[in-house]
C-alpha cells in the first residue's frame, strides 16, 4: 500500500516535471492520453468482473455534454465544478442503465451497453437544435480553482489539472481494488455461482462497479472536453467505445497503471503512424497491435514484469497462455 502511494507520488512528480520540459504538442497528446486513460481504467475495472463494455462512450459523452451545457446554460467556468457535475451526471446515468445492465454478462452486456450508447448518439445527433448535431459544440477554456491561466500557460495548467485529477482517481481505484468489494469483483469473473452460494450479491457488486466505472469514464469525458475544446456525438459512437476496449487490452489489466500506460502508448503509436505512414497508418497500427498480442500476452504491462521475473519464468508464462 505504502509502496503504491510512493510510486504514485513519484510518478506525479515525474510527470509534472515532464510537463515543464516536453514540447507543447507532446504535452497535449499526453494530457489527452491521461484523460482517456481514465476511461480505459473504467473499462479495465469492468473487465475485472469479466464484463466487456462496448458502451463506455455513454458516460464519456454524457459528461462531455454536461460540461457543454453547464458552460452554455449555467455559465459555469470552473473546471473543478464542471468535473464534479460531469461525474455526477454520468453516475446518475449509470445508476439508471446499471439497473438493467447488471443482469447481463459476456457479449450480451457488451452489445446492450453498445446499444444504449448508440441510442445516446442518436439523441445527440437528432437534438440538433440544442447540441449542434454531429458538428458538435465548442467548449471554452475553464478557470481552475477560480484562477484564469494566462493563454500561453493554459496548456500547462490544463495538463497539471488533468494529471492531479487522474492521480487522485488512480489512488482511489487502487484502494478500491484492495477493498473487499474489489476482491469480490475479481471473484465474480472466476466463478459467479460459487460467490452467490457464499451469500454475496453478485448483482449488487456488479452494479456498484458499474457506477464506479461510469463515474471514471465520465471524468475522462470532462477532461477530454475541456482539453480538446470541442465535443460531438462521436464521443458516444461505438467505435470510440471500442477503441477504449482495445487500449485496455493493449495495456493489460494487471495494474491500475497499465491502462494509463496503454493509453499513452496508443496515442503516441497512432500519432507516429500518422506521421510516418499517412497512407497506411491503420496497417502499421494493426501490425504493432498483433505483435504486442503475440509477444506480450498480458498486455504492455508485461514489460514491467520482465524486470521482476527471471527470463525462464517469462518464457513459461508465454507458453502457458499461448
Amino acid at each position: 500500500m505504502r509502496l503504491v502511494l510512493g510510486v504514485t507520488l513519484a510518478m506525479l512528480l515525474l510527470f509534472l516535471g515532464l510537463g515543464l520540459v516536453l514540447p507543447k504538442w507532446i504535452l497535449f497528446l499526453l494530457t489527452l492520453a491521461l484523460a482517456k486513460g481514465l476511461v480505459v481504467l473504467s473499462v479495465v475495472l469492468l473487465m475485472h468482473a469479466g464484463l466487456v463494455s462496448f458502451g463506455q462512450g455513454l458516460f464519456f459523452a454524457t459528461s462531455a455534454y454536461t460540461v457543454g451545457f453547464a458552460m452554455k446554460l449555467l455559465e459555469i467556468q470552473e473546471a473543478v465544478v464542471l468535473a464534479g457535475l460531469g461525474m455526477a451526471t454520468s453516475i446518475a446515468v449509470a445508476a439508471l442503465t446499471g439497473l438493467l445492465l447488471a443482469r447481463y454478462r459476456e457479449i450480451f452486456f457488451a452489445m446492450l451497453s453498445l446499444a444504449i450508447s448508440m441510442i445516446l448518439y442518436g439523441v445527440l445527433l437528432k437534438a440538433y437544435g440544442i447540441t449542434g448535431g454531429t458538428d458538435g459544440m465548442g467548449i471554452a477554456s475553464p478557470t481552475i480553482l477560480g484562477l484564469t491561466p494566462p493563454p500561453d500557460r493554459l496548456r500547462l495548467a490544463m495538463y497539471a489539472f488533468t494529471l492531479v485529477t487522474v492521480t487522485v482517481m488512480i489512488s482511489f481505484v487502487h484502494r478500491y481494488a484492495d477493498s473487499p468489494l474489489g476482491y469480490t469483483v475479481r471473484a465474480i469473473r472466476d466463478n459467479e455461482v460459487r460467490l452467490e452460494y457464499l451469500g454475496i450479491s453478485v448483482q449488487r457488486t456488479i452494479y456498484l462497479t458499474y457506477l464506479l466505472a461510469g463515474g471514471l469514464a465520465g471524468l475522462g469525458g470532462v477532461l477530454v472536453a475541456l482539453n480538446v475544446g470541442h465535443i460531438d456525438p462521436q464521443l458516444a459512437y461505438w467505435t470510440t467505445s471500442g477503441e477504449f476496449v482495445f487500449v485496455a487490452l493493449l495495456g493489460g489489466t494487471g495494474s491500475v497503471f497499465a491502462p494509463l500506460g496503454g493509453a499513452i502508448i496508443f496515442e503516441f503509436l497512432r500519432t507516429y503512424a500518422f506521421k510516418y505512414s499517412p497512407y497506411t497508418w491503420q496497417m502499421t497500427l494493426g501490425i504493432i497491435m498483433l505483435a504486442i498480442i503475440l509477444f506480450m500476452p498480458e498486455g504492455l504491462w508485461t514489460i514491467s514484469k520482465v524486470f521482476a521475473r527471471s527470463p525462464r519464468e517469462w518464457r513459461l508464462s508465454w507458453k502457458r497462455s499461448a
Partner: peptide
C-alpha cells in the same frame, strides 16, 4: 494461435486484422 486465450483477446486480434485489411 489465439485459441484458449480470453475471448476479448481474440476480439483484439480480429480488430488488428481489420485495421490491416483496410489498408
Amino acid at each position: 494461435w489465439m485459441y484458449g486465450r480470453d475471448q476479448v483477446f481474440q476480439l483484439l486480434v480480429t480488430y488488428a486484422l481489420f485495421l490491416i485489411l483496410e489498408d
